[in-house]
């Protein structure tokens, strides 16, 4: 089970994610890093094919989070951005995408000791809201 500090850290992430705090089906398997990076989110990924994702991106930008659009395919954001950033150190990202994009990022994040710490189905199928963050041993 996550401890109180970890709950607080996840709450910190969730509090800046539009619509996530109330809707999150928290994975029982999450455990964000004890020394969570500041700012907590390196980037928010959104699928520009979906109207709710556009709104999500706008909200995230208003909250000071850098955003990156995809069109289903994560190749560009991963190869030209995340892979280079994560090579330096793991940093948290969030997103509102189709499940395939999350699946790819989840696999790639694990190579850098990061996991999906929160995922929630969005009202518009097949969108899913998620957070990937560094892990520590509990």
């Amino acid at each position: 089970m996550p401890n109180r500090r970890q709950f607080l850290e996840l709450g910190l992430i969730a509090s800046i994610l539009p619509g996530l705090a109330a809707a999150t089906e928290r994975s029982p398997m999450w455990a964000p890093a004890a020394s969570f990076p500041h700012p907590p989110l390196y980037k928010a990924i959104y699928d520009k094919s979906y109207a709710p994702a556009l709104a999500y991106a706008a909200q995230m930008q208003r909250r000071g989070v850098a955003v990156h659009p995809i069109d289903g395919d994560i190749t560009d954001v991963w190869f030209n951005d995340l892979a280079l950033r994560w090579r330096e150190s793991p940093v948290a990202i969030a997103g509102l995408t189709a499940p395939e994009a999350l699946f790819c990022l989840e696999q790639l994040a694990w190579d850098h000791r990061m996991r999906v710490v929160s995922r929630a189905l969005h009202a518009q199928r097949p969108l899913i809201s998620w957070v990937i963050a560094p892990i520590v041993r509990t």
Partner: peptide, 16 residues
């Protein structure tokens, strides 16, 4: 040129 573009099965038109 490597790519992950084939992981795009779901679209707004084909959500399932």
């Amino acid at each position: 040129i490597p790519s992950l573009s084939n992981f795009t099965g779901r679209t707004p038109a084909t959500p399932e």
